Computed example of a mutant assay.
Amino acid sequence: MIIAITSFALPKPISREEAQRIFMSTAPTYQGVDGLLQKHYVLSEDGATAGGVYFWKTREAAEAMYTPAWRAFVREKYGTEPTVTYFDSPVVVDNVTGQVFQNEAGG
């Protein structure tokens, strides 16, 4: 599994309520995306930074999302340039199912 963390400094801070409204408007974009297991929208406590934590099946699936078109969408929607950082996730603790499992090498 690959975890991608995106973030971007907002031109001006936003409230949690405003962030929730914006995030709900873009959430359907991520439904059904091939290889995307989960996306968690994030907002810093001061409302100045937003982004997402994405759980992907593979690095290739993740990289297919973060295209120039996606970056342009973020710039247009939030008025700022996003960053994307990738992490391999070799072990997962799932407290919902009560499981701990290892991920295969390479995603």
Rank of each mutant, 00 (worst) to 15 (best):
E81G: 09
G35T: 02
R59N: 11
G51M: 10
E45D: 14
N95Q: 03
F55S: 10
G106L: 09
M24S: 10
G51C: 10
I2P: 01
Y54M: 11
K12D: 12
I5G: 09
V53D: 05
E81W: 00
S15V: 08
A64C: 05
F87L: 13
F55P: 00
D94K: 01
E81S: 06
Y86C: 01
T85G: 00
T58R: 03
V100E: 08
A64G: 07
L10A: 10
T26G: 09
A19I: 01
I5R: 07
V84K: 07
G32S: 07
A64T: 03
V100I: 11
G35L: 01
Y86H: 14
P90F: 04
E45F: 01
V42T: 14
L37D: 15
Q102I: 06
R71Q: 15
F55K: 04
T83R: 12
L37E: 15
M65G: 07
V33F: 09
M1N: 06
L10Y: 00
V93T: 08
K39N: 13
R75D: 09
I2W: 05
L43G: 05
A27D: 10
P28V: 02
D94Y: 12
R59Y: 15
Q31A: 12
E60N: 13
Q20F: 08
N103H: 07
G35H: 01
I22T: 07
T85L: 02
K39R: 15
V100R: 01
T85M: 01
T80P: 04
R16S: 09
V93I: 13
H40F: 14
W56A: 03
G35Y: 03
S25I: 00
T67G: 08
T58Y: 01
I14T: 01
L37C: 12
V91R: 06
E18P: 00
P82G: 13
M65E: 11
P68M: 08
R21W: 02
V84L: 06
Y30T: 06
E76A: 14
E104L: 00
T85C: 03
W70T: 13
S25F: 05
T49I: 08
M24A: 09
V91W: 09
V96E: 05
